[in-house]
Simulated scan of single mutants.
Amino acid sequence: MSSVRTTAAVIERFNHAFVHHLPDELDELVGEDCVMEGIQPAPDGERYDGGQACLEFWRALAADRTTRFAPEEVVVMGEHATIRWRYRYGDGPADSVRGVNLMRVRDGRIVEALGYSKTAGEVPLAAEA
């Protein structure tokens, strides 16, 4: 990598990979020391330590063409980003969940991602299937 990508550029590419189901585009975006906390199981979500663990989870999620991810709002401040999103896992009005990811980017790579959602039950995620 000849130049460091900005936080905004990294998050834009991250979202693009999910919206367009392009898991290979995630490979260059995740830092080796990345830590991720998923939205499930309640109350704290599963923790993934290390870039490979985070990448495996995200690649499976991005590859699932039966779901749709839609960013609703992205706010970037320095190395931090907030992504408000909707994740659809079916065609019915109740077959979706809204949530937020709190992200941190260092040296052009995602090093932290904390996920939170508006759900009372389990959401079928490709990575957990």
Rank of each mutant, 00 (worst) to 15 (best):
M1I: 05
M1N: 09
S2R: 07
S3W: 05
R5H: 05
T6H: 04
T6D: 03
T7C: 10
A9S: 15
E12M: 01
E12Q: 15
R13D: 14
R13V: 12
F14P: 11
F14R: 10
H16W: 10
A17T: 12
F18D: 10
F18A: 11
V19P: 01
H21S: 14
L22V: 06
L22G: 07
P23W: 09
D24K: 06
E25G: 14
L26V: 04
L26N: 07
E28W: 03
E28G: 15
L29V: 12
V30H: 07
D33L: 00
V35A: 00
M36Y: 00
M36G: 08
P41D: 01
A42V: 02
A42F: 03
P43V: 00
P43C: 00
D44H: 12
G45Q: 03
G45D: 04
E46D: 06
Y48I: 04
Y48M: 08
Y48R: 09
Y48A: 08
D49F: 11
D49I: 13
G50Q: 06
G50Y: 05
G51A: 07
G51H: 06
Q52Y: 01
Q52T: 12
A53Q: 12
A53N: 14
C54K: 09
L55E: 06
E56P: 11
F57Y: 15
F57I: 03
W58Y: 04
W58N: 13
R59S: 10
R59F: 09
R59G: 12
A60G: 14
A60H: 06
A62G: 09
A62H: 12
R65P: 01
R65D: 01
T66V: 01
T66G: 08
T67I: 15
F69L: 11
F69K: 14
F69R: 15
A70N: 12
E73K: 14
V74M: 08
V75K: 07
V75T: 13
V76Y: 09
V76D: 04
V76C: 11
M77F: 11
G78I: 02
E79C: 13
H80N: 10
I83Y: 08
I83L: 13
R84C: 08
R86Q: 14
Y87N: 07
R88N: 12
G90V: 11
D91K: 13
D91L: 11
G92H: 04
G92K: 03
P93N: 06
P93F: 02
P93Q: 05
A94H: 12
V97R: 12
R98Q: 13
G99R: 07
V100N: 08
L102P: 08
L102E: 05
L102R: 07
M103A: 11
V105H: 02
R106E: 11
R106A: 12
R106D: 09
D107I: 04
G108M: 04
R109N: 04
I110L: 15
I110M: 14
V111N: 04
A113D: 07
Y116A: 01
S117L: 08
S117H: 02
A120V: 05
G121R: 01
G121I: 03
E122M: 05
P124Q: 02
A126K: 06
A126N: 09
A127V: 02
E128G: 11
E128D: 12
